[in-house]
Every structure is written in C-alpha cells, then in structure tokens.
Design a protein around this nucleic acid. Structure first.
Length: 923
DNA sequence: CCCCCCCC
C-alpha cells in the first residue's frame, strides 16, 4: 500500500489493499481509465445505517489478509466505538484558593528577621534581618538553621507593631551599610562605605561552621518620595549548620537529621516540610499559587515528589522567589514600581552562574534578569544594580532618571543611600518614559517602552484537569500585521481583564510585562508571553482594521510530529470539512470521573479524518441544530487543541484555550470549498435518486458517482431510509426505517469487508450475505465447500474476489467517530436480473437481513480507507496477499481479529436468521 | 525541568 497506511495504523484493511489496473467502461468524472481494486478484510461493522444513496461501482477484488467474519448477530448495536487504550488517571495535585495562599503577608515578610537592634524605630525605614535569621533559611548539613525561627518570630512581631514603618519614614537620609555577614545595618553619614569594612566583618559571626553560602534577605526601603526599596535575598544551597536551638516557630522538626544538603527555599515561609521541618514556600510561576500546599509538595526534601533542590536544578515552573519591594502596609504581595529585588550569593556572582535578579518593571510585573542578559545593564530603570564580585558586595547604582547622563550614577558599594534631594527630584520627574507603538514582533522583554494595539482574539481561563480549578486568565492578541501573542494574567486580575478585554475589540495596551512562554498552556510558538497585571492599562480603540483570525494549521501528516513533542504546545490548529458530529457520550460516574465527550470528525482533502473532541460543557454546547442547518459542506477550524493519541488514533482534544470556528474567513476555507465545489461541478449535483428504477440499466446507474465524491459526503446527512426516504433509526443495518416484511431463512451468514476503488478513491465496503449474491455463492453452498472453517481463514472463494471487477450498489454505513466513510453492500449489479427489487416496504427480493453485531461486541470498523494518491497509482496491477501468519496480526493493532471463534449459535428470536456467528472477541 | 487537559 501507500503512505496512507501510516495514517491508519489500526486499519486492518490497509494490509489488503491491492491495486489493480483495468480500464472500466463507465463514465466518470475522473478520466476514462479506471482502476479498481478491492480487498477483503475483517468486517468490523458495528451497525450500518442505510440511506438513500446507492452508488454503483466497479471493482477488482484483491484479497489480502485473512478475512474474518463479522458477527451477524441479530440485535442491535449502538454507536459502538471501541478503542484499546489505557485509562488515564490524573494526579492529585491540589491547589489552594488564591485567597489564602499566603499565610504571611508582605509585612510579615518584610519584618522577618529584623534584628533586635532595629526593634525600636529610629526613623530609618530600613529593616534588615540578620542573614542567618531568614525565614527561608534552612540548610543542608542535615540541619536546618534553627535561628531563623527566632528571628522570624521577632519579625512577625515587628510587623504587627509597625506596619507602616517603611512608608512613613524618610528613608535613606542616612546612608546605610548592609553587612550581609552579620545582618547588621549601620548608618553612615558617608555614602561611600568602604567595602573593605564590609569584607572585614566576620562573615559568619552568627553562623558557625559556615559553608560557602548562606541564605538571607534584606529589605532596604529607600525612603523619600520615591520610596525605592530594595529587596535583597541571599540563599544557599548548603546552608550552615547552627547550634542555636529553635525557640519557637512553625513545626520545628524534632528530627532534622537526614535532610539533604542542597535543599533550599526562600521567600515567605508558609509551609513546613513534613520531613525535615524546614519552612519553605514555593509558588507556581504561572499562577502564583503555592504548590507547596499540595500533599505531594509538603516536603521540601527527600522523598518529596518535587524535591526542592538547589537553585540550579529547580524546575522552571517554580518561581524561586518573589522579590518585591514593598511600600507601605497595603502592598500585599504586589510588586511596586519602585522596588527592586536581588538575590545575593554569599560567594559572589561567580560562584553561581544562574542566579536571578528580579526587578520590577514599570508595568508592575516582576521580571527576572539573568546577570548575563544584555538587558541587565540596559534596563530603563531608575535603579541599576549589579552584584559585586565577591563577598557580599552589592552595588547599586542610582541613576538620575531626569537626566540623560548615565555616567552620573551614584555608585554605592555595600551601601545604599538615597539623597533626599535626589529623591525629591526623582519624584517630580516621570520615571516611566512615554511609550511608543510597537508591533508584536517588535516587542522585547528587555524593552518596556512600548505599547501595543491589538485585537482580542480569544480569551480563556486556564484550568487544571480534571477538577477545573482555575489557574490563570489568558488571551491571544492580534496586531495589525496579523501577528499573535498570548498574554497571561493572574487569576486575581481575571475579572478586570474579562471586563476590559472583549473578544474582537481593539485596544491600546501598555504597561505589561513579559514572561517566558514555555510549557503547559502555551498556545503560540512565541518565545515569550505578555504578562498583564496591576499596572496594565487598556484603552479601547475605534480603529478595527485588524485581522480576525490567527491559525497555525497543521496538516494531517504533521500531527504526529506535533504530538511527539514532550510538552506539546497547544498549537493543534486544524481545519477541514465537518465529517460527522457525534452525540454527546457520558462516561464515568461518581466513583471516578464523570465526563462528557463529543467527537467531531474533521476531514481534509485527502479524506483523512481526525476526531476533534469536545468535553463536558463544550460538548453539550456544540450547536448541533445550528450546524445541521448549515449549508454543506461546513468547514471547521479548531485551535489550541491538545494533541494526543487515543485508541491508537491521533486526536485533537479541546482545552480551555480551544476555540472553533465554522467557515472561518481564512485561505484554507476557500481552498476546501473550492475543492468541494469543483468536485461537485464535475459530478453535477448529487441528486440522490431514492426510488428504485425498474430498468436494470437505469438501476445500474442510479446515483452512480465516483468514490472520491462519495467519500466527501458527511454520512450523517445521508441517513435516510433507502426504501421510503424516511428518517433512519440507528440499528437498522441495511437502511430501512421500517420493519421488514419478509422473513428469510438464511441459516448462515458471511460477513466480510472489501476495499474497492474506482480510481477516484478507495472505500471499504462491508459485505453481508445474502447481499453478496453475485460475488460469492450462496452461503450455505459456500460453507460446504470450505474445509477450514476457521473464520480467520478466508475461504478461497472469497479470496478469489481480489482483483475482480464488479458494479456495486451500496449505501453509507452509519458514520463513526473515527475514520472515513464506510459503506455497506446492497447489491451486485454486474448482471441483469429478472426481478428487480421494488421500492415497497416489503422488498420481494432480495430480502433484507436484519443483521447487526452483537451488542456486547463493541467493535469499531477500521477507521480509514486508503485513499488513492499519487503514490497509489491506480493502475498498478500488483496484487499481494499477505501471508496469514501471526505476525500479520501486528497490523491489526487496534482491533486484532484474534480469537475469532466460530460459534454456531441458535438464534431463537423471531425474525433472526443468522445462526452461525463469527464473533470478534474484545480484548 | 514539572503536578496537570478528561474518554473507550
């Protein structure tokens, strides 16, 4: 076969497809030389619904594989789809409500570790905790630094007492010296504090047996009108041991031995490791939610599912820390425009290469800047700061934002100072530069001087599955040039942005930050995502000359590659014809997960069909009625799907970011419609003649259309009774809506499946006796000739159908969610017959056998039909019959016809005629 | 460098 096989790995038919070369002598829109082939395969028909379209085709039989026999068990089957797969379970990560994710407010944080000598406000809004008093300090050496508890307690107390200490004092009037080693802050009249002084201080005065690094943090509010505050963190991957016993504090561990050396966290401390007792606090980058609340995260050290190891190995979804300046008591966990933060390594920046510097952009978004990043020195920020090269150097440069002379920055080394005059001056000068319009492609995380004008294309709330816990607000924005970018906002800003950002409206947006676009929830192939927050400003524009769509469609053959990516970004955009729309199915229950599913088949021009799966409310809300009223064909574009493999088949699974569009105004829609119309024009209209014709020749050509045309029809639209045109109910195998008037006495039944081609397409046709008359002998006669009644062995008489040519009358089988249209044989029209069936409700000949599959046998027919393509030249006469050996079964990966058992059974129900049942066994 | 997108 052809490359098409890959697309349908579970299609048993594919192995049997055979090309035949033979010219056919009937008219067709696809040229005069038609090649047809057929093959026989396992019949995997669940139920086949009929309809009025009957098409005649010539085919060559070419049998390939072991044919097996379908169950011709009377009774009905319903939309049976059976996939073999694994049930998926989801983890139990619990995220708390955002509202209570912090047990310590910022003030507490700020005050943690306040040295005793600062307990009494001295008019200097500098709070410097002792280094070893950091709440976030806990260290390796299997021992958590105990003194943190003491200091932490002190700090908390301090908060309560003086919540507004920072904002109400004119900070920075006196230069301060930060002694990172001791945690002391001294104040000097002289700004230029000698670094040697600092260096000269005993670095581990309170921390004996100090390894190389320690953890600490400092808040240095730099007062004055600017209220610039610096937050300085230090952390270590191997904190010092301490001999100080904990005095109080949360969950002081009774046993801390065994804690690994390299676990370290910092930030606010609202979690206590269940194992080592360390206090830690981490948060998910996107949400800001503390992940540590989840049970599996309640350990910071060994045996935890997420080991909070050294910084270098932190997974990216963990924010290290949040280093926010704080101005005033009301700044709760919010960055401010006048705060900076830094991590300070005890060993200096060279000891660790990937430390973060977290600054705050004017937008209010924190941004992490690696020291190696070019933006590090070029940030348009009033404060530029770098690390010293060793020890505890902290160099801060206070640039005069009102001036252009960068050279006039005041240098501070190991000291912070704010000249009150400068501060006042700064307050009057606008810190935020006027912004310029930029296209999305011109944005850079290092440049916050731009604003954008965009159309809101989509917005959604990211949720966690399966509990649908909201995580964040997201949207996709389009600029005038058609570029797209995703923007995320914290959940607490969701209401505002939901209100201020209306779908399809156009806005000027400024004051946003950037975050690295990685991992889950990424819908675009951009490197970064905008971050909207408190300082984001939104103004609606009247100019609406903006694109309405942005897609990154994958072709069918590209889906696998996208799926294979470990963290598939949600760019599972896909477009095609609506092939079929399933009803909603509900699975699970109270004891597991209750989920509703609706599949919509999307077919491309090659007749590849991919299921697009909607879940729950989205499944229910699909406007079936609206769709049913739409002019065929309907083009469906889906976006931001999660690509996965389900039941061996690639699937476009909807996410909260997914949106779908009927007949979207994009180029691909035009192509699809043009192709459809072209096919339509070439074949004329498919005017389905439902009335049978009395003339054999007329009947032979009734509704005679190329396969390729038929395959483009949504079988759902063809579900009419082929006897009376009435509505067809599922379960009627051969297309009549009414009871059958004539009983038949077929004791045995054959069911097999063939692949036919007329050169315009390949189609799977399910063949049931006695409709096989003209193809094979009467079933009973045939059975007598069959020596090996193993249903896995195709009787020679059936095998002989390969590479033969016939004219078929068939009907659409009931559509399934998976795979393209299949058909059910109605009649072989090779030779004229004396008696033609009538259109009456009681066909005289041949009687319709109400065969269905055993309802207990959930079985889905092979989903796809190999399609004629350029690499399946229609005139290749080669016939290959795969040997029937066990290895061949590998090709039946999804619906292996293993254990097809001949089970002669007596059907005791009236009007049931089958007695020999060839049963597929479900695995 | 990760908990997490559901179904037979």
């Amino acid at each position: 076969m052809t490359g098409k096989r890959k697309a349908f790995p579970n299609n048993s038919v594919e192995d049997m497809s055979i090309q035949v070369s033979e010219s056919l002598d009937f008219h067709t829109s696809h040229g005069d030389g038609l090649s047809v082939s057929s093959s026989i395969s396992h019949l995997g028909v669940g139920h086949v619904g009929g309809h009025g379209v009957v098409s005649s085709h010539v085919f060559h039989t070419s049998v390939a594989t072991p044919s097996s026999f379908c169950p011709s068990i009377p009774g009905s089957s319903s939309g049976n789809t059976l996939g073999i797969g694994t049930s998926q379970t989801t983890g139990g990560c619990l995220l708390p409500n955002r509202g209570h994710h912090s047990h310590l407010d910022q003030n507490r944080l700020l005050h943690c570790g306040l040295p005793p000598h600062l307990d009494s406000p001295v008019g200097v809004p500098v709070q410097v905790p002792t280094v070893d008093g950091s709440v976030s300090v806990f260290e390796g050496n299997n021992t958590m630094h105990p003194s943190y508890v003491v200091v932490r307690s002190s700090g908390i107390h301090q908060v309560v007492e003086c919540p507004s200490i920072y904002s109400h004092h004119s900070a920075g009037h006196a230069p301060m010296v930060l002694d990172f080693s001791s945690g002391n802050v001294t104040y000097a009249e002289n700004v230029n504090v000698s670094s040697s002084t600092i260096h000269g201080s005993a670095p581990q005065s309170r921390v004996p047996a100090m390894p190389t690094r320690r953890v600490g943090y400092m808040y240095i509010p730099i007062g004055g009108p600017l209220k610039i505050s610096a937050v300085i963190y230090r952390y270590t991957t191997s904190a010092p041991a301490s001999v100080d016993p904990p005095v109080q504090g949360p969950a002081a561990p009774a046993q801390r031995q065994g804690a690994p050396l390299d676990y370290k966290c910092f930030g606010r401390c609202n979690q206590v490791c269940q194992r080592c007792g360390a206090v830690f606090w981490l948060e998910e980058r996107r949400t800001g939610l503390p992940i540590s609340v989840a049970p599996q995260y309640q350990r910071c050290c060994a045996a935890g599912r997420v080991a909070l190891r050294s910084h270098e190995r932190y997974p990216p979804y963990i924010t290290h820390i949040r280093l926010f300046g704080v101005v005033g008591a009301n700044q709760y966990e919010l960055p401010t425009a006048d705060g900076i933060g830094a991590i300070v390594y005890e060993g200096g920046p060279e000891t660790i290469t990937d430390y973060d510097v977290v600054i705050e952009r004017h937008s209010g978004e924190p941004e992490s800047v690696n020291k190696l990043h070019p933006a590090y020195m070029s940030l348009q920020f009033p404060l530029l700061f770098i690390y010293g090269e060793e020890g505890y150097h902290l160099k801060l440069r206070l640039r005069n934002p009102a001036g252009d002379d960068h050279q006039q920055e005041k240098k501070m080394e190991m000291a912070l100072t704010v000249d009150p005059a400068t501060s006042e001056k700064n307050a009057e000068a606008p810190v935020i530069p006027s912004r310029q319009l930029a296209y999305l492609t011109e944005l850079s995380p290092a440049d916050n001087s731009k604003f954008i004008e965009v159309r809101v294309y989509r917005k959604w709330t990211a949720v966690k599955i399966p509990g649908f816990t909201p995580i964040s607000f997201s949207c996709i924005l389009l600029d005038k040039k058609g570029s797209a970018i995703q923007a995320n906002a914290d959940l607490k800003e969701k209401a505002r942005f939901e209100h201020e950002l209306q779908i399809n409206s156009v806005y000027k947006i400024q004051g946003f930050g950037f975050e690295k676009a990685d991992g889950w929830g990424k819908t675009l192939d951009n490197d970064f995502t905008l971050s909207f927050g408190k300082y984001t400003q939104i103004q609606q524009l009247s100019d609406t000359d903006f694109p309405y769509h942005y897609f990154n469609f994958a072709a069918f053959n590209e889906l696998n590659a996208r799926l294979e990516k470990k963290n598939p970004i949600l760019t599972g955009d896909y477009i095609g014809y609506v092939h079929n729309v399933d009803k909603v199915n509900e699975y699970g229950g109270a004891t597991t997960t209750r989920v509703k599913v609706r599949n919509i088949g999307i077919r491309n021009l090659n007749n590849d069909v991919v299921p697009f799966t909607l879940w729950n409310d989205d499944a229910e809300n699909f406007k079936e009625a609206e769709y049913a009223q739409m002019k065929q064909p309907v083009i469906l574009a889906v976006s931001s799907c999660y690509l996965k493999r389900y039941a061996g088949q690639i699937q476009l699974s909807a996410t909260s970011a997914t949106r779908y569009y009927f007949n979207p105004d994009v180029e691909e829609t035009g192509k699809l419609l043009a192709a459809y119309n072209q096919a339509n024009a070439s074949r004329g209209h498919i005017q389905v003649q439902t009335q049978r014709l009395t003339s054999w020749e007329q009947e032979r050509n009734r509704n005679r259309v190329p396969l390729g045309t038929l395959l483009q029809i949504d079988p759902k639209t063809q579900q009419k009774c082929d006897e009376c045109g009435g509505k067809l109910t599922y379960g009627y195998l051969h297309g009549q809506c009414h009871q059958y008037g004539t009983k038949t006495n077929h004791q045995n039944s054959y069911c097999f499946r063939i692949v036919i081609t007329d050169g315009t397409g390949n189609a799977v046709v399910s063949c049931f006796t006695p409709q096989t008359d003209g193809l094979i002998k009467d079933v009973n006669t045939l059975l007598q000739e069959v020596e090996n009644k193993d249903p896995a062995t195709i009787p020679p008489a059936i095998l002989a159908l390969q590479n033969t040519r016939h004219i078929f009358q068939f009907q659409f089988a009931a559509p399934t969610a998976k795979g393209p249209t299949t058909f059910v044989l109605k009649k072989i029209m090779d030779e004229p017959q004396a008696t033609l069936p009538t259109s009456s409700a009681s066909p005289s000949s041949p009687p319709v056998v109400p065969m269905t599959v055993n309802a207990g046998e959930e079985y889905t027919p092979p989903p796809a039909t190999p399609t004629v393509t350029q690499d399946t030249p229609a005139d290749v006469p080669t016939i290959t019959i795969p040997p029937h050996d066990p290895s061949a079964k590998k090709n039946y990966s999804q619906h292996p016809p293993v254990k097809n058992v001949v089970q002669p059974q007596r059907n005791t129900r009236k009007n049931r005629v089958s007695t020999i049942l060839y049963v597929y066994h479900k695995h």
